[in-house]
């Protein structure tokens, strides 16, 4: 289209923004009819409940969930002062810190290993990405056995190396490590698949050119591979962090938030306060914090991806 007539269209559109013709209304009605089933469900189970979460966070409730009195900012102020909630935030932060960098680093190493042209490589790819099909409950039950101090293989293998294994799920500072190890294993499949796709998108010529310039081994990895897959790496940092913030199953099956709140991560804390202590208002304030954290992470991702991570 020639630019002049395009501009003319734009001006025409701008002048007509507020005017709806009968045809506009008819096409809108058709469009909405197709969107209605999804929108009804989103309204009922996403948008309205989110609004109710914020609303509830300003009220006190009975154990049935019925609202009793207005609490104002009390629940949020309680979050600021509660030692329990601080322990939970610390657990969440450690959980992210242990899980995300290690999980992605391990995923990258394995993806590089899998990014070779070899006969039968697909068998290895399937095996190593198998954890995408494994549920958090199944993974947690298996790791629960591995962490078992008397029956578990983990401490036995460590003892062979001369290391006295810890009481994985009983020592407060170790329990969050155990939960993190389980989570790293559970997310490994996704990390490998995303990074492998990223690696396969790197043009062969770049490596050849760098080779001619005398670069090899570690230099190739740090100067070419990592920058070239940086969009995938960044995508995973955000997605994996959000997944860790939402983690519940591992904690419920491995540690139940303990010992002494050492693994009381955000969603588990919401579960305890809402469905064990029946403090729905206070739990809703924590749910609002969860929403805010995920929102910020998503916006950061959106802004950075818009700018691109690496520069071609």
């Amino acid at each position: 289209m020639d630019p002049k007539s395009y501009d003319a269209c734009r001006r025409y559109d701008a002048a007509n923004v507020m005017r709806w013709t009968a045809r506009d209304l008819r096409s809108l009605a058709t469009g909405l009819a197709y969107l209605a089933p999804s929108f009804v469900l989103f309204a009922a189970f996403v948008f309205i409940p989110l609004g109710r979460t914020f609303y509830l966070s300003f009220f006190n409730t009975r154990s049935t969930g019925a609202i009793t009195t207005f609490a104002g900012l009390d629940h949020y102020l309680e979050l600021v002062t509660s030692a329990e909630f601080h322990a939970g935030l610390l657990a969440t932060a450690l959980f992210v810190l242990y899980t995300v960098p290690l999980g992605i680093g391990l995923g990258l190493v394995l993806a590089v290993l899998l990014n070779q042209r070899l006969r039968g490589i697909n068998v290895f790819r399937t095996m190593m990405s198998s954890t995408i099909a494994i549920s958090a409950a199944v993974g947690s039950l298996i790791w629960l056995l591995l962490f078992n101090p008397s029956l578990g293989l983990l401490n036995y293998v460590l003892s062979l190396a001369g290391i006295a294994g810890p009481q994985w799920l009983i020592q407060p500072n170790v329990a969050i490590v155990a939960v993190s190890i389980t989570t790293i294993w559970l997310t490994l499949g996704t990390n490998i698949i995303v990074l492998l796709a990223g690696l396969q998108g790197v043009p062969e010529e770049i490596y050849e050119a760098a080779h001619l310039d005398g670069a090899h081994g570690a230099t190739l990895f740090t100067r070419i591979t990592i920058p070239m897959v940086s969009p995938s790496l960044f995508f995973l940092v955000v997605v994996d962090t959000i997944a860790v913030l939402q983690a519940f199953t591992q904690i419920h099956l491995l540690t139940r938030g303990g010992p002494v709140d050492a693994t009381r991560a955000l969603v588990y804390s919401i579960y305890l306060d809402a469905f064990q202590n029946f403090q729905f208002g206070y739990a809703s304030a924590q749910a609002a914090v969860l929403f805010a954290l995920v929102l910020v992470l998503t916006l950061v991702q959106f802004l950075v991806i818009e700018r691109r991570v690496h520069y071609q």
């Binding site: 409940p49 969603v267 609002a288 998503t298």
Partner: peptide, 29 residues
């Protein structure tokens, strides 16, 4: 389909991806 407000509605759709299910679990229960 072409209709007015399509981009806006698509954005509303995608915004549900930013809302963690656990943040709405109490009212949903």
């Amino acid at each position: 389909l072409a209709f007015r407000g399509r981009s806006l509605l698509f954005f509303v759709f995608l915004s549900t991806l930013m809302i963690p299910w656990e943040a709405t679990i109490i009212p949903n229960y």
